[in-house]
Design a binder for these strands. Structure first.
Length: 482
RNA sequence: UCCUCGGUAGCUCAACGGUAGAGCAUUCGGCUGUUAACCGAAGGGUUGUAGGUUCGAAUCCUACCCGGGGAGCCA
């Protein structure tokens, strides 16, 4: 919301405290001010001070500025109070001294309740005692809404249980920690896009409504499409990606995906975001290099641009600083042997559980690339290894610290006859894949790509216990609200 | 779906067969440098629901509801 308007009239004298809506605020409006005026003029509001954000406060030392935000917390003594103002970009401690302020303003500030909305004007001052290094000496304030004490803001600065916090997710996002996670998520998403864009990839988004499964139907959410047809929410854009790669060479899709898995763990959501690149004229080694490069780039960007957020989260950044290329590479065969040596009861042909993934990476300070899985445990479209056709040219990237598989992908089958045979082996109806078979009919080439789960990646960056904190409104097995 | 843990004040928890309690939040009072401020006082409860055992149940038993953690599957 823009406040400044050079052409609008100014008030003769500063207004110490203004209440926009007295019905809501429960406080008397300042005499002589008609609340109806200010929505129109916009200038009565906060005098002439420029509006700044807390994240920029260091550039305004010594200046009088206005900050529009919410009361994060307040500490008060008899004649001095310290409102902590939150504006979405950070938190700043304001200082209101009774002796220096009109009685009305001081009392209004002192009695303010948590998460009341207000615009504070005052002088920025470097202050060693304050977190963030700056304070705001209050000169005037406009209270937009005072939260009623009869129904106070439910999330206090003290402890809360996860059930309560999840029920209040729409408010929980206002906490320092959740804001930090969302900013890191933003950095991760932006860095993913930059990584691909800088290498000539084109973003081509794939449909959310899809007519059939990519990899079996048990984990699909069914949707009634105008009474006549059953459609499913996508669980991967990969098949469409392959078509797009044949058109544009290097592509990626980036959007929500849906899995109706009845998983109830700290690593699962039913709705999560996934980025999926796909390259024409590419083999497994190209896919591995792309995946490794992506991870290194995104970790670097988070470290470079989100130091403050990592600090809020008390993330051990050494664990991220060690994430440099090259990542250790290992075949599935060797991984099974390593796991057996560490006491896992895994046998050849089985997929890794989470305990196996944690075991495998426990001595590594960076992710591990595991490739050449048994074809039986992989989807129908994986290209078999030329040296052993029981192996699929798939690769998983397993993050350290127990964060598990963050990337899965590989090289796709380009031979039409082999692909058809695999469809039949997997009991998939070939007629549903006619368009997909076309890609092998009209100029087929080796190609490959992968998918990376954004929330799992963000959880790893942030060091969160559970990925539910890494998306604003998580959708899980037993939680779909708010 | 299976295994496992839990549901007591607005919130976090205590009481574990014998009168339901504390901290925070809220209200009132005090405090000019507080850092989840502190000090004093007050209000606040059909112990998830329904049955059962018992002289007596938050506590023991049964069923159901809701949630946490994990397994399988996956990103």
């Amino acid at each position: 919301m823009e406040k400044s308007d050079a052409n609008a009239p100014r008030t003769a004298a500063p207004v110490p405290v203004v209440v926009r809506d007295q019905r809501v605020a429960g406080l008397p409006a300042t005499a002589g001010i008609d609340p109806a005026n200010f929505q129109e003029s916009g200038v009565l509001l906060t005098m002439s001070a420029p509006r700044v954000r807390i994240s920029d406060i260091a550039h305004h030392d010594g200046q009088t500025v206005s900050i529009a935000g919410w009361l994060y917390n307040i500490r008060r003594s008899g004649k001095i109070c310290f409102p902590l103002l939150r504006d979405g970009s950070g938190i700043i401690q304001c200082v209101a001294v009774k002796a220096n302020l009109p009685e009305e303003l001081f009392e209004a500030l002192k009695d303010l309740t948590q998460e009341s909305s207000l615009i504070v004007t005052g002088k920025v001052r470097a202050e060693a005692r304050a977190q963030g290094g700056f304070e705001l000496d209050v000169e005037s304030a406009e209270i937009i809404q005072r939260v009623s004490e009869a129904d106070p803001y439910p999330i206090t600065p003290k402890d809360h249980g996860i059930d309560f916090l999840m029920d209040h997710r729409h408010l929980w996002l206002r906490s320092k920690r959740q804001a930090a996670i969302l900013r890191i998520r933003h950095e991760v998403i932006k860095s993913i896009r930059d990584y691909f864009d800088n290498q000539g990839f084109t973003l081509v988004d794939t449909p959310i409504f899809t007519p059939a499964a990519c990899e079996g139907t048990t984990t699909l959410f069914e949707v009634n499409y105008f009474d006549e047809e059953k459609l499913y929410l996508t669980q991967s854009g990969q098949l469409y990606n392959e078509a797009n790669a044949m058109a544009l060479g290097k592509v990626y899709c980036f959007g929500p995906t849906f899995r109706a898995e009845k998983s109830k763990t700290r690593r699962h959501l039913t709705e999560f975001w996934m980025v999926e690149p796909e390259m024409a004229y590419a083999d497994l080694e190209d896919v591995k290099a792309l995946a490794e490069g992506l991870v290194v780039y995104c970790v670097g960007r988070v470290l470079e641009n989100r130091k403050a957020e990592l600090e809020v989260l008390e993330r051990d950044v050494k664990k991220l600083e060690s994430v440099t290329a090259p990542f250790p590479r290992m075949s599935y065969d060797d991984a099974v042997k390593v796991l057996q040596g560490k006491g896992s009861d895994i046998t050849w042909g089985g997929d890794f559980g989470n305990t196996d993934e944690t075991l495998l990476t426990q001595d590594s300070d960076r992710p591990i690339l595991v490739d050449r899985y048994p074809s039986e445990i992989k989807a129908f479209y994986f290209q078999p290894d030329a040296e052993n056709d029981k192996l699929a040219l798939g690769v998983d990237v397993i993050a350290p610290e127990g964060y598990g598989e963050i990337i899965g992908g590989g090289q796709r089958i380009h031979d039409p006859e082999l692909l058809l045979r695999r469809l039949k082996e997997h009991d998939l109806p070939p007629e549903a894949f006619n368009w997909y078979m076309d890609l092998r009919k009209y100029g087929t080439v080796p190609h490959g790509g992968f998918g990376m789960g954004v929330e799992r990646f963000v959880a790893w960056m942030c060091g969160t216990e559970h990925i539910r904190e890494c998306i604003a409104y998580p959708r899980m097995l037993y939680r779909t609200r708010p």
